[in-house]
Design a protein around this nucleic acid. Structure first.
Length: 819
RNA sequence: GCCGAGGUGGCGGAAUGGCAGACGCACGGGACUCAAAAUCCCGCGAUCGCAAGAUCAUGAGGGUUCAACUCCCUCCCUCGGCACCA
């Protein structure tokens, strides 16, 4: 008998697959297409770990099954290779990031091929390839030309010790990742993209797609839409107004003061009138220094300063109100100003602390609470019935809101307004290893786009990859690159030295797979039309609010300007699912520092790629976090060896005629077919295990035909083994190109079943009956049983419940007389 | 604080109203072997019992139902996301 030797057979089949066209997607085929997408990896120096492999294996199973079902499958891979770790490596070792990237992608490619993933390697892409980022830059230029990219002064993370700007991911718990120094805020000019203009569509169009519900919810929450009103408060002794956004205009009559964000421009505009300006500016300065963490510390009590000398008028009550500043009011949400009353905890607290008058106007349903609210003992934030509110008294909060808005609206003091938490997307990075932003600044003409014919703007070679002391990208120091001509007036001008964030290259990569070599467009319209939208996109939950949202936005933009065919529709991904993380042994996170990273190379070496694949699918539900269990891997290897041994026998036993096994096989085909589609890979594997166990119990009388079908359903999971055994059967073609088997529905119908007999809902006996037995027949047989006779003990049967094909339940206690 | 997911043997998990613990790991016993490994067979939630069997058991407590891991209410815990958003 031959011995199972994965090292030998796996390499052999990998060579055959990758040297043939079996996994190649064909542009312009008449077949139905299926586009499966996994998030392309960042090729780090550490290589793949088993957590990366899990989604690749899962979608590989889907891809292989879809091909067998006759689809033209696009299942591509590439490298999202710009980014900080490679840059940091370059800084430390003085090796060019491109060199390191080359080395890392070679390693990743080898590792992926090692586990037999059926990617179409002819479509491999790399975001750091100038032929690729030419189009990343082109997209930026379109955003710029449509006015969606603009430069603005905003706060960046600044490390005072390293004297450089930091990306958010370099700030760990408010400290610099490299030196541990506390990170400060520093104002710098940055490019921003107006994603906020698409906020509404990014919410609405979620109705068009099949994403996991939690993904939709997270995206909606991130965008943070709230509908309310914009209310004007006139400034006393001035023509000016202060505008406030509120979702609770029903509480306007209890508004007794106004609070502004410390950064609010109103303060600068009216500083002459502010009597305690020094104190106000001091408060503003201290609020700026305080890190986000201190500012949002939940235990911190509220603080504020009054703008003395300034009052405004409540448009509803006509009362004069003081104006305060407090750091819990955020500059960049709503209008950076709120009206304050006794129906908001923070306002309530601030007023109590500084003795600002308070009033209530909402009565909660609970009488006890209501009295405490009225005496200002407690703060009530919920809705209720209005009082102290003139003609609106007695209305509920929900009824009152539109009425108050239109009442104030008639006086020009209020209007309906929708606000979003989503902010414009900061698109500048002061780093080397990213796409140069293709813009030129001219003293006379301002910011000018690089002419499209001059794209790509290639990253020049530098000696030092470190950001400059002033927090700029090292490109600033490459004078002959920076200094250029203005494309408009031909006068002297300088290039933008900021580079793009990581997200820039990954925004649109799924489009490039359709035509990875195209040098005239992102990809040809014809191929985009054929392949898009992506049918199934799987990725991590950590990308739900950044990558997934950004790429939906960029796609919508490209769709709007006609850069992609209209026929695709406004959404790039039809379906989005997510995988669970693979944790280290014992349930802790897998990380280099903990030394518990499992490298797939080692598992492949010890057990084989098929064992790794089976184990990663079998270990637990695909969408759930799951700890790696080194001991558990052998179970998958044993399963594979059982199949291997069984096939040796089955091959010679061609005359087997075991009906029970055939039935079991068809049940397995059904289960595996359904489970793959539902991403229930763990139970798909276990059903195949059950079948193999049944074969062994049944004396290994597996017919050749049945073995063939079994190998077909096995092949997406353990493709190398399936190919090997397929060729052992004497076939010339590959197993992965066979037709997916259909189960025979008639065959799996049971003729006889074990009928469960219950007394008062408890199982007391089981009897074999015909599956289609009627209640009368079942009752008759059930009541004959000795056990049942004893349990009934001549008591009267009150009720009989019969579930055909399942159970019969005799109720002998009278439950209706129960108290 | 808000939103989401989850809590089942020693462990990973299965069962979406109808036999709780499929499948796998670990463990125990047996067969084969000079021996070991591999393989095969048997057992494996708890308690009581020689046994047949009975009772209890799916985070806790209540409820709906002939029947609840599954549905409803209250609470506890774990994980993930957002978080002074007016």
């Amino acid at each position: 008998m031959k011995k199972y030797n994965p090292q030998k057979i796996e390499r052999k089949w990998q060579d055959k697959w990758y040297n043939s066209a079996v996994f190649q997607a064909k542009n312009g085929s008449k077949k139905k297409k299926f586009y499966l997408l996994v998030e392309f990896p960042y090729p780090s120096g550490d290589g793949l770990h088993v957590g990366h492999c899990r989604p690749y294996i899962a979608l590989d199973i889907l891809a292989r099954k879809k091909r067998m079902e006759g689809y033209n499958v696009l299942f591509p891979i590439g490298w999202d290779a710009f980014g900080l770790p490679t840059e940091n490596y370059a800084i430390k070792k003085g090796i060019h990031p491109a060199t390191a990237t080359q080395k890392n992608t070679d390693n990743f490619r080898r590792q992926i091929k090692n586990i037999g993933i059926s990617f179409d390697w002819l479509r491999e892409i790399n975001t750091t390839d100038p032929a690729y980022y030419k189009w990343t830059q082109w997209i930026f230029l379109q955003l710029f030309k449509k006015g969606l990219a603009y430069k603005s002064k905003i706060d960046i993370n600044w490390c005072p010790s390293c004297k450089t700007g930091l990306a958010n991911e370099e700030v760990v718990f408010g400290k610099c990742e490299r030196c541990g120094e506390k990170v400060e805020k520093k104002e710098k000019e940055q490019w921003l993209i107006k994603i906020t203009e698409y906020a509404e569509r990014l919410i609405e169009d979620l109705d068009l797609v099949d994403y996991l519900e939690k993904i939709k919810i997270q995206q909606k929450e991130w965008i943070g839409k709230s509908e309310g009103a914009l209310v004007k408060f006139s400034v006393e002794g001035d023509e000016d107004f202060l505008e406030v956004f509120t979702t609770r205009i029903d509480t306007i009559f209890s508004g007794t003061f106004l609070i502004l964000a410390p950064e609010h421009k109103f303060i600068d505009k009216h500083k002459d009138k502010i009597q305690d300006l020094e104190e106000v500016l001091q408060y503003r300065a201290s609020a700026k220094i305080a890190s986000d963490i201190e500012r949002t510390n939940e235990k911190k009590s509220v603080t504020g300063v009054e703008l003395k000398g300034i009052t405004v008028r409540n448009p509803a009550t006509g009362e004069e109100m003081p104006v305060w500043i407090a750091d819990f009011v955020l500059e960049n949400y709503g209008t950076g100003a709120v009206f304050a009353d006794a129906h908001d905890k923070r306002d309530f607290e601030l007023a109590k602390k500084y003795g600002i008058p308070l009033r209530t106007s909402i009565e909660p349903a609970d009488k006890n609470i209501a009295s405490q609210v009225k005496t200002l003992e407690i703060c009530y934030e919920g809705e209720g019935a209005l009082y102290n509110s003139m003609q609106f008294n007695g209305l509920s909060s929900a009824e009152a809101r539109p009425k108050i808005i239109s009442w104030l609206g008639e006086k020009g003091m209020a209007s309906v307004k929708t606000s979003y938490k989503l902010r414009d997307w900061v698109f500048s990075r002061q780093h080397y290893w990213g796409e140069p932003i293709p813009l030129i600044f001219c003293e006379n003409c301002g910011w000018q786009p690089v002419p499209e014919k001059d794209l790509p703007v290639e990253l020049p070679k530098v000696k030092n990859y470190k950001p400059t002391k002033t927090g700029g990208s090292p490109l600033i120091e490459i004078k002959n690159w920076v200094n250029t001509k203005c494309p408009k007036c031909k006068g002297p001008a300088r290039r933008e030295t900021d580079t793009m964030p990581n997200w820039a290259g990954s925004n649109w990569y799924f489009l490039r797979y359709c035509g990875p070599k195209n040098n005239k467009k992102l990809a040809a319209d014809k191929t985009l039309k054929y392949w898009l939208p992506v049918d199934w996109y799987n990725g991590g939950m950590e990308h739900t609010t950044l990558h997934l949202l950004y790429s939906r936005f960029i796609f919508k933009f490209l769709w709007d300007i006609g850069a992609v065919p209209k026929s695709i529709g406004p959404e790039p991904y039809k379906k989005r699912t997510s995988h669970g993380m693979v944790l280290g042994e014992g349930g802790i996170k897998m990380s280099k520092s903990k030394g518990n990273v499992i490298n797939p190379d080692n598992v492949v070496k010890e057990y084989g790629a098929d064992t790794l694949r089976i184990y990663e699918m079998f270990m637990g539900p695909f969408d759930q976090m799951i700890p790696w269990d080194t001991k558990g891997v052998v179970g998958s290897r044993r399963f594979i060896e059982k199949i291997y041994r069984l096939s040796n026998v089955a091959d010679s036993n061609k005359s087997g005629n075991n009906k029970a096994l055939k039935k079991a096989l068809h049940k397995t085909i059904k289960k595996v077919t359904e489970d793959i589609g539902a991403m229930k890979f763990n139970t798909a594997v276990s059903s195949m295990m059950e079948f193999i166990n049944a074969c062994n119990v049944q004396g290994r009388e597996l017919e050749r035909d049945d073995l063939e079908d079994f190998l077909k359903i096995l092949s997406p999971f353990a493709p190398h083994l399936a190919e090997e055994l397929w060729s052992d059967l004497g076939f010339k073609g590959m197993c992965c190109s066979q037709k997916w088997p259909k189960y025979n529905a008639k065959l799996i119908e049971e003729e006889k079943i074990m009928l469960i007999i219950q007394i008062n809902g408890k199982v007391r006996d089981k009897i074999e009956v015909m599956a289609n037995a009627t209640q009368k027949e079942a009752e008759k047989i059930a009541l004959k049983g000795e056990k049942i006779k004893q349990w009934l003990n001549n008591k009267k049967i009150k009720k009989v419940i019969f579930v055909p094909g399942r159970l019969i339940n005799f109720v002998i206690t009278d439950f209706s007389s129960k108290i």
